[in-house]
Computed example of a mutant assay.
Amino acid sequence: MSPAPVLAAGAVCWRVSKKGKPKILLVHRTQHKDVSLPKGKVDPGETLPETAVREIAEETGLIIALGAPLGVVEYTLPGGRDKQVYYWAGEVSDDARANSTFVSNDEIESLRWVGLKKAREVLSYPHDVDIVDRFAELFAQGRARTFAIVALRHGKAVPAEDWDGPDATRPLMQRGIDQSLSVSHGIAAYRPRHLVSSTAARCLSTIAPTARVTGLAVEEDHTISQDAYRSGGKAVREVVAGLIAGRETAVLCSHGPVLPQIVSAVMDETQTDRTSKLQRAAALGTGEYAVLHVPVDHPESGIVAVEVHSPTA
């Protein structure tokens, strides 16, 4: 039986020059003597988004928010084991650049901001060039700068048949608590600005670890609770429409029956046709979350990308 592949994650860190052209960040690795995109291996218990932002911070000193995923590259290591590296776009703000803590070290010799053409010329590996090309396509379309609507299903709760109180008071089981903890740092990698939760205890408990990690207050909204569920979904759509109008990343923690309405509302507001990935995003298991990336400048041009992540617990 072949060993599991080595998993890693990174990002195309980018900014716009004064001339309106994209610049991306390359790292010159000391020991490998190569030029590559910043990335690193997954630590035990980490999710891929969590790894990406941690590795960017460690290698470049930059704190970024993950944008749209750019795909995965696969190759075989010298020892024969397969490696998979997942990449996201990650815009770097002026403040992040000013606050970078990078100093040359035994792993990374130097950092270099270059244009797309130069990046293709100096990158040491063709698979890195492929990732840059995917970013370049998004930028050319005006869809590289995104915000996200994150749909989070509550963790595993005590079954209704085993609970004597009102349904809204059903607590999480230990598995649900563990699920909530395991996804919190991954969700935080997208740097949400709003946390919205159903008023049900199981949802509030699920989003609580994310609130602690991000330092954000949770906005309780009965509209996205199971008790308020209505087949038409009009009230849910109004909540989603308001968040999309604000063009800031937001997390909505809700229930199985409500999640399809949340996803459909994002589709309607962005004029996006249904796909298999969106169907999967609407059918989350307990503790899972979906990330729907929407272009900041033209939300009506459609969802840029869809991700679904599962808890490690």
Rank of each mutant, 00 (worst) to 15 (best):
L278D: 07
P38C: 01
A160H: 06
R145L: 14
G233R: 03
K118L: 14
K18R: 11
G285N: 07
L278H: 08
R29E: 14
A245R: 09
T286K: 01
P78V: 10
V85P: 08
L62I: 12
G40I: 08
A4T: 09
R212I: 05
V196Y: 06
W88G: 13
Q179R: 02
A241D: 09
V103G: 04
P209E: 01
V251E: 03
H28N: 15
A250M: 07
T47L: 15
K117V: 15
L26P: 09
T249E: 05
V296G: 00
A201C: 08
L70V: 14
I262V: 15
Q174C: 07
A98Q: 08
P260T: 09
V183M: 10
A140I: 02
P78M: 11
T275C: 09
Y87C: 04
P295W: 00
E220N: 05
A65L: 04
L181S: 05
C253Q: 00
Y229F: 15
V122T: 15
V308M: 05
R112D: 12
E107T: 14
V158C: 06
S110K: 12
Q31L: 12
T146A: 08
L292G: 07
A235I: 00
K39Y: 10
S310H: 05
A98R: 07
A52Q: 04
H28M: 10
P166S: 04
T206Q: 02
S17W: 04
L111W: 01
E161I: 07
V236T: 10
L116R: 01
F147I: 13
L116F: 07
D133S: 14
V42Y: 00
A290M: 08
G10V: 12
V6E: 04
